[in-house]
Design a protein around this nucleic acid. Structure first.
Lengths: 154, 154
DNA sequence: CTCATTGCAAATAATTTGCATGTAA
DNA sequence: TTACATGCAAATTATTTGCAATGAG
């Protein structure tokens, strides 16, 4: 058993989900998931496809698309839209939060975490009687570099 | 001067922006902006186009698109992506925040505001040297009603 | 064997652009 | 008059689907 970017917990969730839905394990899915969970980025499908092609040049875009869809359905991936016209995905690791600072000039994305904000969020949700399952928190503006330099696209 | 959905402050921002950029005021833009600022919803371009057609059936989709783009650039509108494949826009009124609780079952959207969270946000941004221009904060989950009732689409 | 999966190409869908014509300033 | 703006249609871009061939269980 070689080491893998997919941790045991994710593997378990996945196996349960696939078993329950009669899905099959394939070499393509393994390759795609390996690449996906190995990336720290917010990957777009196209990026991931390119990464995957280096491992197996015969994997189609649609397969990457469908695999990400599957991961999203079983909760192992989260789909995000940052405003350029394409969806991005990131691995959902339990207990981690992925809040973002996004530079509108160069596209830089910085992740941050703030437990106090999380706590206040839960409070607000409670006030409205909501049961929260996930959240998204983004701030858009200019990163330090683009505040000085005449902003140029990454 | 007939009454209008566009408030004085917005009008001022707009006029400044147009003057500075050599843009011209047109009947189409007025119609579109009237409809846009009159709507409380998160409107998609298609929706807005449909609304606008009732006032002037000759206005094209592209004009609505370009007007919204302009409003976004001068900060009077905010573009959002909720995950269905289309962008939605909402009027940006200064001092108002548009944070959302979103029910995944019935689609209910509740707006909330929390000054303490805002403050912490500014703090986080400062730590990373970002100059923040706007933000988005959404919590997704189940509203009180859908926690009980077998959730059915709105 | 049986049915899910794959790769390809084609279909959708939403957004964006080119351009001839119209129009505000 | 001179740019900018408009409407249309066409181009782009991203996503999604149909289907015959393939492969997992």
């Amino acid at each position: 058993m070689k080491d893998s970017a997919i941790n045991d917990q994710a593997r378990e969730v996945l196996q349960g989900y696939m078993a329950r839905n009669g899905l099959k394990s394939t070499a393509q899915r393994d390759t795609i998931m390996e690449a996906f969970f190995g990336s720290h980025e917010h990957v777009a499908i196209g990026d991931l496809h390119r990464m995957v092609l280096r491992k197996n040049p015969r994997i189609g875009y649609a397969t990457v698309y469908r695999t990400l869809k599957m991961l999203t359905e079983c909760g192992l991936a989260v789909e995000r839209h940052f405003g350029d016209g394409q969806a991005r995905y990131e691995p959902q690791r339990r207990g981690e939060h992925h809040d973002h600072l996004i530079c509108r000039a160069c596209g830089l994305i910085v992740e941050f975490e703030n437990e106090e904000i999380e706590r206040l969020q839960r409070e607000v949700a409670a006030q409205h009687g909501f049961r929260v399952e996930s959240h998204r928190h983004e701030m858009h503006g200019l990163c330090p570099r683009c505040q000085k330099a005449p902003p140029r696209r990454r």
